[in-house]
Amino acid sequence: MSSPIETLRQEGLPEQALAYLTALPEEQQQTLAQQVLSTMQKKDERVEKALSRALDVVPAPLRRTVRKMLFS
């Protein structure tokens, strides 16, 4: 399993932000990187849910078009 910092690098966290994290002492680095990652995952989930729920307010005949608009 990759470290939180490696995951954040793969997810596209800018180099400068990664440099801030890696300059911290090991334990602090892990704590902060883990927190940054956890917040990112929470935000991702929240947006995904909202996109799905947004379809609920769309009248049935338009739902297909809107689904395409939101998820294509």
């Binding site: 800018p14 400068q16 932000a17 994290l21 990112m40 935000k43 991702d44």
Partner: peptide, 13 residues
Amino acid sequence: FRQQLSEFYYQRH
């Protein structure tokens, strides 16, 4: 760092 992080979170979505 905070500003880059805020931008990173925003741009993801």
